[in-house]
Computed example of a mutant assay.
Amino acid sequence: MNATTTRGVLLTALACVLVGASFTANSVLGDYPYAGGQFLRYGLACLLLFPLAGRGTAARLRALGPRRWARLALLAAVGMVGFNLAVLAAERSAEPAVPGVFVGCAPVVVAVVVPLLEGRRPQRAVLYGALLVAAGACVVQGWGRTDGAGIAFSGCALVGEVGFAVLAVPVLRPLGPRLLSATVCGLAALQSAAAGALLDGAAWLRRPNSVESAALLWQAVVVTVVGFVCWYMGMQRIGAERATLFSGLIPVAAACTAPLAGTGSYGPAQAAGSALVAAGVALGSGALRAVGRPRGPGRADGRLGANAPTGRERPAAGVVGPGGPAPREDLPAGPTGR
């Protein structure tokens, strides 16, 4: 893998690990109004992200047009607010592992949907890697009791997870990771407020206690700001198909941190599932091919020389379009997942 791909892999992996480790924070917010918590989380993240979005923010937003604004609103509604609502609804009649297993299948769906939308065939290595990742996520989480409603809402959570990646592809290039993250967080905050006022009335928002405040700050600053920016920066470099492979790290990170919080254990099943996820990520991301690739001519490190044609390279989905490469953004300075 070249430096750009390696950086994209590391950024995407970090984002998913942060989301998985955030489940401990979620466990202390069970008594806080759901919509109010999402409003505070996304609203604070939006306020932190917009100053880091760079120059020309207003011009880039004005240039989007109605169709892209509709896509952004759908991304926030389906991939953020709707996803979290679906998981919450599923867990009312199903054990948490059930929506987790459904969401763990997202890499397979993305590996098929994104190529079809672009008029090309799915890449075999990515698809096989996605199947391994999905199997590993299922082994890590196991299966629990559920009913028809739990399965239906778990399916909605899967749609939300897929939408979080697929819907972002056409707007990632014009906005960049930071402005995209800031915009969808602002839209998600407004949607959460509307949902809370409609479903919970005046009780949709209250002052959090100290423990809830700490959990909401963690979710807003670390999971949302850092996680979202890292996720979209990684996706900008390696494409939606390969980036979604790393969502298999979410249940792995949750399983690894659960013993620290006393909410679970890490046993042989979790170890075996983690190994499957690691194998799937390595296969689908191209790490295995990079290790086994023979040394090319003219370079001591085995990479092809500057003038050596390959004949098989193509840009990652959502990274380079007809207008040229997407604008590169480095990690924001200072405080910066779903």
Rank of each mutant, 00 (worst) to 15 (best):
A58K: 11
L249A: 12
R92D: 10
P335N: 13
L132G: 04
P174H: 09
L190F: 08
A215H: 03
P66N: 08
A111S: 14
Q236V: 00
A97Q: 14
R295E: 09
L260R: 10
L205M: 14
G267H: 12
A253L: 12
P170I: 00
G305S: 14
G280Y: 06
R7G: 11
N84L: 14
R237P: 00
A203F: 02
G318F: 02
V139R: 01
A134V: 09
S265F: 12
L14A: 15
P177R: 06
L180M: 14
G100V: 07
C156E: 03
N307G: 12
P327S: 08
G56C: 12
G186C: 13
A63L: 09
A21V: 14
L288T: 05
A243K: 00
G30M: 06
P107A: 07
G273Q: 07
R124K: 10
P174V: 02
F246W: 07
T263P: 03
A317M: 09
L132E: 04
G30Y: 03
Q270H: 10
P259D: 12
N209K: 02
A111N: 05
L245N: 03
V291M: 13
A189V: 03
A134C: 12
V108R: 01
V211A: 15
L11N: 01
P96N: 11
L10V: 14
V184Q: 12
G37S: 12
T5N: 06
V223E: 08
G248K: 01
T57V: 15
A53M: 09
T224C: 14
A53H: 03
Q38A: 15
Y232L: 02
S192F: 08
R145S: 14
L131C: 14
G318K: 01
F102T: 04
L131N: 03
Y34K: 10
G148L: 07
V226G: 03
A106G: 11
T146F: 07
R299F: 01
E241D: 10
L49T: 04
S192R: 03
L18Q: 03
G273W: 04
A97F: 03
S22V: 10
W218K: 01
V277N: 02
R145V: 06
P174D: 11
A243V: 01
V98M: 09
S27W: 02
P332T: 13
A240K: 02
P309Y: 09
N2T: 11
L198I: 05
G129I: 03
P51T: 11
